[in-house]
């Protein structure tokens, strides 16, 4: 499905960069004892054609919205969005009423992005 859909239309990307991973460092001070900051990254960029790292649902959704709007009507469907599709965990120092403890938090650092 992806192969044929991609082949049916090929043109230059319009408007901004294509969906991808960008560096983002956030403060953790209000949430945890450590680390003070973490580079969790963020996914940013366009999910217009060609959709970056899309799956079948995103491709069908994209074509549905495009054909609705090209038919003169307008679609209020949510269009594919650039989001993380792979993550890494982060070791942190957390706390509770008994004191500190080390903890591995899953899905903290974005490692790859895709249109979903």
């Amino acid at each position: 499905m992806q192969r044929r859909l991609r082949a049916t239309r090929a043109g230059p990307t319009t408007g901004g960069t294509v969906c991808g991973l960008k560096s983002l460092t956030v403060s953790l001070e209000k949430h945890l004892l450590g680390p003070q900051t973490a580079t969790i990254n963020n996914c940013r960029g366009s999910c217009a054609f060609p959709l970056a790292n899309a799956n079948n649902h995103a491709i069908l959704l994209h074509y549905h919205i495009e054909s609705s709007s090209s038919g003169g009507g307008s679609s209020d469907e949510r269009a594919p969005c650039c989001v993380p599709v792979a993550y890494e965990a982060l070791e942190v120092m957390d706390w509770n009423e008994h004191g500190t403890y080390l903890s591995i938090k899953p899905d903290v650092i974005a490692r790859a992005c895709g249109c979903r």
């Binding site: 004892l33 680390p35 003070q36 942190v92 120092m93 004191g99 500190t100 080390l102």
Partner: peptide
């Protein structure tokens, strides 16, 4: 890491820092 008890710091955890 120290916990403040009765206004004084009490050792909670001293070690190599695997987090920061």
């Amino acid at each position: 890491y120290y916990v403040i008890m009765n206004g004084q710091p009490k050792v909670d955890y001293l070690a190599c820092d695997s987090v920061e």
